[in-house]
Design a protein around this nucleic acid. Structure first.
Lengths: 110, 110
DNA sequence: TTGACATATGACAATATTTACATATAATCA
DNA sequence: TGATTATATGTAAATATTGTCATATGTCAA
């Protein structure tokens, strides 16, 4: 893969590399949603959530649309959810492996 | 998803969020590989590559084994490649969409 | 048009990441 | 044992990310 593509891909992963942003995506999994609901869901300062939404927007992971006073956000490509889910699977597998190793250690000591 | 899991997942994405680390994974796609070959493949300072390998190790994305003087690295869970590939697909789709929009703009101006 | 509301943006301090250089460690070989 | 090789680690400067506070923007309703 060429240098520019690697950089772009790294930037996409970087956009996912924050718990608050993952939580925003979790909320958007239920469908499009206005900022006020997102803020309720993820908690914290309005301006902070807005900054994180901007990061997701700049990475083209979400896009927004004004509806009267509100702004509604939506995921650009639902494949992003598969990525998040796969990563979750990796973590669960890791944990399971660690647990297995720990268990066999405990058995060998007993 | 609970707070700790979100944090762990964010940390995993963070580990992928660098072009050099993605390039290391690209190399490891061909199978286990010693550090000297990785350095050749990705280029740059030995110590820098080593730091990046440490980041991947700490995220449990790769693990290593000493073989004589060399250290061989290998991906822990090949699912990581699917994640990287899916993200690549998202980027390609994004580009395609932008291109389509641009083309229809050009047509509408002509 | 003024005020209230929802959201975005700017500025800045705190913190984390990245890179390069120097040095340490561990295995092999003469 | 001492030199050599492959790799890791410590350190520090440069840079990027994060969170908070203050402020700006755009829309609606009175």
């Amino acid at each position: 893969m060429n240098k520019e593509t690697l950089k772009t891909e790294a930037a996409m992963f970087s956009a996912l590399a924050h718990p608050l942003r993952l939580k925003i995506l979790e909320k958007l999994h239920d469908g499009p949603c206005c900022v006020c609901k997102i803020i309720q869901y993820v908690g914290g300062e309005q301006s902070n959530v807005s900054h994180h939404l901007a990061i997701l927007r700049k990475a083209n992971i979400v896009h927004s649309e004004k509806k009267g006073l509100e702004v509604w956000y939506e995921v650009t490509d639902p494949e992003i959810f598969r990525i998040v889910d796969l990563m979750h699977g990796c973590i669960v597998l890791n944990l399971k492996k660690s647990r297995d190793i720990l268990n066999s250690l405990i058995r060998s000591v007993k």
